[in-house]
Each structure stands twice: as structure tokens, then as C-alpha cells.
């Protein structure tokens, strides 16, 4: 292992990690939003949108991100829709992640008893108030493990952004590998970098899940 090579290229990896993390987080943020909207459309059976949300989640969950990115980046411009690499990255990751987040929210909402919704309605809350104060807080608590699993999954998926010629971790490593030939060091640093990014995420997830478990709401149903 050539440590001086490693030391010399740490800045490259740092900038790569910056790209990975930044676009990963953009993607996660947008995915949460899209996922929430889709999930609420389906939960409240909003006409037409329920159907659209269903179609979208099925499409996004059953196709590879790599193919989605090729379609966005190399296919769409040929019919006049030109998107920058950055836009493709965020749209692609959101397209994929939104569907996964919608599933996480959906199973969270399904775990909230129907009677909770009715209890909220019975004290005169509007639909919006009921979602905000009664349903979502409980659904989120249940959905947290799935949401964090998706966050880790999505950050890992950013490794495909190299096909958009973005200088993320993967592409930084690939460029160094093809130019310098120090494959072992390059890949060692690449693996270490992903570990350093994802370990903290995993620890945060662990901490949040534990807190929620201790605050456990307990069983509401009569036995």
C-alpha cells in the first residue's frame, strides 16, 4: 500500500465525497417530499392522482436507476428535453427514491389504526389537521427504520452518477485508476470513503430508532 499516494489524493476524494453527499442529500430531500405526496394521494384516494401515484411507484421500483439515468441523460435530449447532468442526477435519484419513500410512508400510515383517524375526525379536526397532528407523527415513528434504510440505499446509488460525467467519489476513483494504475490504493480509499459517509448515517439511524422505541407509544387496542 502506497501511503504517500493515498495522502496525496485525499483532497480529490474529499471533493468527490462532497459531490456524492450533496447530491445524495438533494435526492433524499426531494424523495421524501415526492414520497409523502404520493403516499397521501393514495391514502386519501385522491381521484386520478391515486392512479398516477400507483403507476409512478410501479415504474420507478421496477426499473434500474442506471437505465433511468441513461434515459434522462442520453435519451431525452434527442427529443428536445435537455437537462444538465446535475438536474439528471437529482431527478433520477428522486424518481427512484420517491417511490421507495412512498412505500415506507405507506406502511407507516397503514400501521396507524383506522380508529385514530376517526378519533381525530370526531374532535372536529380538518383533514389537514388530522394528518399533521394525529396520523403523520405516528406513521413517521413506525416508518423511521425504513426511511433510514432508504437514505443509505440512495446515497449508495449515487455511485452511478459517474455515467453523468459527474465527479462524485466513484468517478474520482475511476479517473485515478485509469490514469495512475494504482488500483489497490484507489479502491481502498473509495471503500473507506463510502464507509466514512454511511457509518454516521447508520449511527444516527440507530440513535433515532432507539429513542423512538423508548418513547414507544404502547399498544392502544383493547386486548
Amino acid at each position: 500500500m502506497d501511503w504517500s499516494f493515498i495522502g496525496q489524493h485525499i483532497p480529490d476524494y474529499l471533493s468527490g465525497a462532497g459531490v456524492t453527499l450533496r447530491f445524495g442529500l438533494y435526492g433524499v430531500g426531494c424523495s421524501l417530499l415526492v414520497g409523502l405526496i404520493c403516499c397521501l394521494c393514495r391514502y386519501f384516494r385522491v381521484p386520478v392522482f391515486t392512479w398516477l401515484a400507483r403507476l409512478y411507484t410501479e415504474l420507478a421500483r421496477n426499473t434500474p436507476l442506471l437505465v433511468q439515468l441513461f434515459f434522462l441523460y442520453a435519451g431525452l435530449p434527442r427529443v428536445g428535453v435537455k437537462l444538465s447532468a446535475d438536474a439528471c442526477a437529482v431527478i433520477g435519484l428522486t424518481f427512484l427514491g420517491g417511490a421507495y419513500m412512498a412505500e415506507a410512508f405507506r406502511s407507516g400510515l397503514e400501521s396507524v389504526d383506522q380508529t385514530q383517524k376517526e378519533a381525530g375526525e370526531c374532535i372536529g379536526l380538518t383533514r389537514g389537521q388530522n394528518i399533521r397532528y394525529v396520523l403523520l407523527p405516528q406513521a413517521l415513528a413506525t416508518a423511521v427504520p425504513a426511511i433510514f434504510a432508504n437514505v443509505i440505499f440512495l446515497i449508495k446509488e449515487t455511485s452511478m452518477f459517474s455515467v453523468l460525467a459527474m465527479m462524485d467519489l466513484m468517478n474520482v476513483a475511476d479517473t485515478l485508476r485509469t490514469s495512475g494504475g494504482r488500483t489497490v490504493e484507489v479502491l481502498f480509499m473509495l471503500a473507506a470513503a463510502y464507509l466514512l459517509i454511511l457509518m454516521p448515517v447508520s449511527l444516527i439511524a440507530y440513535w433515532v430508532e432507539r429513542r423512538l422505541r423508548y418513547a414507544g407509544f404502547g399498544d392502544q387496542r383493547p386486548v
Partner: peptide, 20 residues
């Protein structure tokens, strides 16, 4: 498996193992 993107693992095996 949880922390490594599959692409990284592919690189390690395809390019890395050849070197190592």
C-alpha cells in the same frame, strides 16, 4: 454489504482482485 455500493464491490473484484 450494507455500506458498500454494489458498484464499488464490482470494481474491487473486477479491477482490484486482478491487481491483488
Amino acid at each position: 454489504v450494507r455500506f458498500m455500493p454494489q458498484l464499488v464491490l464490482l470494481y474491487v473484484v473486477y479491477f482490484g482482485f486482478a491487481r491483488l
